[in-house]
Amino acid sequence: MSRKLMMGAALAALTLAAGCVGGGSTSSRTASGPGPLTPAPVASVTANRLPPPPPPPPPVEAPATAPGAQVAALPPGSAATPPAPPASSAPVTRESVTGAWKVSAGGGNCQIFMALTQWTGGYKAASRGCPGQVADVTAWDVSGSQVVLKDGSGNSVASLSASGSGGYQGTTAGGQAISIYR
């Protein structure tokens, strides 16, 4: 009998510990739970302009010339046309192109973000602060080993090939040099 009594006492203790009271009304119990939460303070929202995009990377230094060597110079006010980048034989993947890119085009710097969302002419792109034709970029796609930037009508704005620095270089439809880099 003592064993039954011990088991009954243990069961009663467990029942009380679990918060179960047999035979009592629920109105006699006190609710134990968290109180209401106090609202968090909210600061006012302000609008500011974003800072300009960072400058492009510095140009590659030309090799030093020997003393007394003659060097050709461009007339003042003219710009050198960069040589066409070598075509890369490895195809470019869409996944490697997605994300944010810094852009140097038409004498200015800006940013382009390329997503994998289907869009007119390929995939969605958004430019910020870009000059000239590059401001019209709303789509992009990959064609073999080239990245093609497109406008809202699906027309090609620029074609770029992989450069040795992990970025891409090419020309716009208007003939301006353009490069994108991270």
Rank of each mutant, 00 (worst) to 15 (best):
L37Y: 00
L37F: 02
T38G: 04
P39V: 03
A40Y: 07
P41N: 03
S44I: 08
V45Q: 10
V45G: 02
V45C: 06
V45L: 15
V45I: 14
T46R: 14
T46D: 13
T46M: 11
A47F: 15
N48A: 15
R49D: 14
P51E: 12
P51M: 09
P51C: 06
P51H: 10
P51S: 15
P52M: 09
P52V: 10
P52W: 06
P52R: 14
P52G: 08
P53A: 09
P53L: 00
P54T: 13
P54N: 11
P55L: 09
P55W: 01
P56T: 03
P57C: 02
P58H: 06
P58Q: 04
P58C: 07
P59E: 01
P59L: 02
P59D: 04
P59H: 02
P59R: 03
V60M: 07
V60G: 02
E61G: 11
E61F: 06
A62W: 00
A62I: 00
A62G: 01
P63Q: 06
P63T: 07
P63F: 05
A64H: 05
T65Y: 08
T65V: 15
T65A: 15
T65L: 15
A66E: 14
P67T: 07
P67K: 09
A69P: 00
A69G: 04
Q70F: 10
A72C: 03
P75N: 02
P75D: 06
G77E: 06
G77I: 06
G77A: 09
S78Q: 13
A79C: 08
T81W: 00
P82H: 05
P82G: 05
A84V: 10
P85F: 07
P86F: 01
P86T: 08
P86K: 04
P86I: 02
A87D: 10
A87C: 02
S88D: 15
S89R: 13
S89E: 13
